[in-house]
Amino acid sequence: MSNRRHNIAFWAGVAVFLVAVLAMTQIVRNEYPFFAGYVILQFIALAVAWSILGGYAGYVNFGTNAFFGVGVYTAVALFKATGAPLVVQIAAAAVVGMLLGFAVGLLTLRMRGIFFSIATIAVAIIIETFVMNWRFVGGAAGIQLQRPAVMAPFDSYVKMLFFVQAILVVIAVAVARYIQNSRIGRGLQALRDDELAAECTGVPTLKLKLVACMISGALISAAGAPAAMYLQYADPSSAFNLSYSVSALAMSLIGGTAHWIGPVLGAILLGSTQQLLSVTISSEVNVLVLGIMLVLFVVGAPKGIIGLLRPRYRLRAGGKP
């Protein structure tokens, strides 16, 4: 069956990717590529995670920064309180992100369109305000973190984080791919096109949106969790920076949300451009480029890069029959 062949090809690709990443951490001496690569991987994870709710379901989440920041601070709080290892920090962040997704979803997913989007910004600001007033994790001033010793086979913490983020990317992509090819994906696509018609055709829209919001939230928080150790520092205004929201949204929409590969392409393209620009010009210019690209694409190429590559690319193309 072609379905099975697709699966084998996909997981073989994943294995090659992870082996390559691992080999790179063992061979390349210089730490810089890992610093930059980590950021690109993080953007891939964020964009793919965002597209589960924003792309498949069509609910534009401006609150990526809320989930990201919650991931960062779950890791920070846990690390400060118990010194828990990185894996535990990430798992805890995913759980908290999922719970937050559930709460946010219950509160906001009955709202349509722009109301939902504005509500997600509101959630982000409110959580950020609480963290700013939370002394234990340093309040508005932020908190310094001392990285623990690195684990074998890695010889530097950044290389390890790079590998960990690569695994998070794989998880995000695998989950997005699963949803896309399952009944859930079809239901989300239906409610995205027309929520009332979907309901009347038997789609449990609220439940599906909640599931999408929880999964998306868990993945975003998980992708954010290692950021504390990456920067060795966390403060509310960077952890809850709205630029995570623009990036995730822009990379997804620019890549195209009809297929999981879209956000991956968008994030690789824009993420690497950003890395180049912020080294060569300035970090403001890369936000400008992101904004302009976003506007150009939503106006001129509604289906994103994958729409340009393959006109009429369909959500279920290449998926389960």
Partner: peptide, 17 residues
């Protein structure tokens, strides 16, 4: 209609759910 879907896929929604 579910505009982003083919005619067949439109029907699959009902059959699926």
């Amino acid at each position: 209609p579910f505009k982003s879907m083919t005619v067949l896929e439109n029907l699959m929604v009902g059959l699926d759910f």
